[in-house]
Design a binder for these strands. Sequence first.
RNA 1: GCUCCUGUAGCCCAACUGGAAGAAGGCGGUCGUCUCAAAAACGACAGGUUGUGAGUUCAAAUCUCACCAGGAGUACCA
Length: 870
Amino acid sequence: MESKYNPAEIEEKWQKTWAEQGLDRTSTDTSKPKFYALSMFPYPSGNLHIGHSRNYAIADVIARLKRMQGYRVLQPMGWDAFGLPAENAAIERGVPPAKWTYENIAHMKKQLGMLGLSIDWSREIATCSPDYYKWTQWIFLQFFQAGLAYQKEAAVNWDPIDQTVLANEQVDNEGKSWRSGAIVERKLLRQWFFKITAYAEELLKDLEQLTGWPDRVKLMQANWIGKSVGAYLEFPIVGSEEKIGVFTTRPDTVYGVTYVVLAPEHPLTKKVTKSKQKAAVEKFIKEVSAQSEIERTAEDKPKRGIPTGGQAINPFTGQKIPIWIADYVLYEYGTGAVMGVPAHDVRDFQFANQNQLPIQVVIVPPENVETFHEKPLQEAYTEPGTIVNSDRFDGMASVEAKGAIVQYAEEKGWGKARIQYRLRDWLISRQRYWGVPIPIIHCPNCGAVPVPEADLPVKLPEDVEFSGRGASPLAKLDRWVNVACPSCGTAAKRETDTMDTFIDSSWYFLRYPDANNDRQAFDPAKTNDWMPVDQYVGGIEHAILHLLYSRFFTKALRDRGLLNFDEPFKRLLTQGMVQATAYKNPVTGKYFPPESVDRSNPLDPDTGEALKVFYEKMSKSKYNGIPPEEVVGKYGADTGRMFVLFQAPPEKDLEWDDAGVEGQFRFLNRVWRMAVEFVEQPSAQKPEKSKTRSPLPPLKRGDSPLSKIEKDLRRAIHTAIKEITEDLEGEYQFNTAVAELMKLSNAMGEANCKDSPVYAEGIYTLVLLLAPFAPHIADELWHRLGNTESVHIQAWPKFEPEALIAEEITLVIQIMGKTKGTIQVPSQTTKEEQEKLARESELARRFIEGKEIKKAIVVPEKLVNFVIIP
RNA sequence: GCUCCUGUAGCCCAACUGGAAGAAGGCGGUCGUCUCAAAAACGACAGGUUGUGAGUUCAAAUCUCACCAGGAGUACCA
């Protein structure tokens, strides 16, 4: 038997053994409680780097812990396999997308295998497989029948690089595409949408139940949904039957409205414009529409507007007020028109001042009702206050006036209460090839007709050409496009758009519990049994996108009677990125591979300029991605796992550090040596062999009571069990859990009782506690200790409370909050006894002699603080 | 601009619900043991105003306020 720790050998051996024994298969023993551990499935880009593995290592530790704790655990894996890179590979290199994708999957699956993850591969799914996307199409049809999928013409985000439209969620705050980084353009197109807005209120409200989610993710979703409570009010147009509807959150300011503004795109613009203004208005609209979205909404840009010459009536005051159009009013939000209250809105104030529009104060600060009018307003007063100049509402508090004015408006028929959301419907069609075909046939007689269920899947044709230009390859494929209408038989055409790939990932977690079902998307009984996901692990970048869409899908499918729960992910852990050193020329922006530069003096090999050295997210383009093979080959997967778990708390970014990796390797070596020496030592107290799932194999204990050394070691052992279990069950502090493992190993090394059964208990416990983190070495050592079954099916150790009790404890003595020293006192004494012992101690007496003690503060088992009168 | 997070030794990071100026663990550093030497291993050590300033408290890294620095989200949403 080799006595040196050889990770390459044992890792391969155990991975093979586990596979043969089916150790990673999902248990079907329903007498056990279930635990569904899920990592966000990867896009098969071709290569895994060590950054990805952090995600899987975290989920794997949790899955392995839960298995040892007696749960039946589902930890599946799959591939988010549709998407543009495959298509780009086809355009650039002529490789068919399917071939490219499946080859990448094969390679990445091998890489994942090296990490020793306890994944049930019998449930593997790939979203690009017809077995899977058949059901994506089926779900689309469910949505279509429920009125949740519809077509409309809308101004949409067009990505000029990827040649497709994008959903709002997929455009960042700089107006750039999430994928290509291109500035998106506005286009008016007829597209497919999912009616996610129908669930706006529930998506917002149910965030409250997600107590296992990080607050910031919930906050981001709440902001994205953007609920505003206010009123819809109508302003009749002078000389017309029509009215301008506006949404406002400040109905309490309606008596201060001095003008109304329409968005330039607003259809009423043409009707209200007087002939004198026509030319100027048209010119203005042309200028605005020529601007890009970002130009138009730039922060420091002055608000530009122009009068239409038309007038409206403020029904509350009966006054005639001018109608303007301005670029700061967004057509897409609310009604595309706003009421102007310059006295009480920052933007309106700025706009009114620029354009010499009147300002009417209707709310004043409650403390200076009398004097507020004496000076002209310097800025908008947006705080609550007392209502003035508002007829019957004068003197009312503005917060109360909100409701009163809305009620009054309802009585008079001028408007009503309204809740407005920022969330828009989800644009789901994409003008690309490598995605799920939308199962719709457009018939000249019947309109949009769903493909009958029996004809699913609508397969993606494989013999297509990729030019990379113009319309999607599907649109050019006549023999695929032309089809008879399923309803009336007339010559009709297939929908040639494919679905947003975020649809594929909005339900994959529902498929895993029943991944090989060829008759249903999933058997509701199985999915309802396993769902919701107990622990979901993934990147923060999906805080809105994937996580919001999945919540929407869950609720929509629940309402179709397919699911019996409201939320898909009970607990969410958003892990930080793994960063590595990147070398960049700050002038040219070019990155260099670390091996091409001198690390002590990094210079650009081409120009000789000094390079900037910094940590950045691992990526191919920055030459700083570390392939798992490199780490696994050098130190083994166990070391790699230990490092990413230890180096930083899971939600924080982590900096790759070669020296730190070596530190973990050293630690595993130390554990190895300790266990092997124990096995080889003849005098060691080996426990009886046991096949049972008892917390620990029963130890042979002598009759003699434990020595102090043994008691101290035992306390260290059980403290480690307690701390590590808490770290893994509560807030997921893998970094401190690993530190506890190290502490235990240090305590073992120092303990001078290698022949004691307590030492044996320590060895066994250390290996068991190590198992979720470093599964290979743990199983190898477990077997070397004489066990015949895997460490991973053993019961997780439980700490014994009495083992934690120390005989003596240290009490801190403070005088006026200043520490003066410590005394040793017996443990398990009362607060009063502790105070008495402290008071009588020589240490305290030195300070309190002859002084009056005002009071003594006792923190049990910790300190006694005397407050004295000097 | 608004909202949120972070700020502890050369570096990464601990510190339970406020409770020791002995702050866990790791990396790096220094010194020693071992060795012909080195690596590995083992042992020992290393003066840090807990970003700054104020406040609350018997007691503050921990609570409050202001400021500084870094990061994230969001941005004319009416």
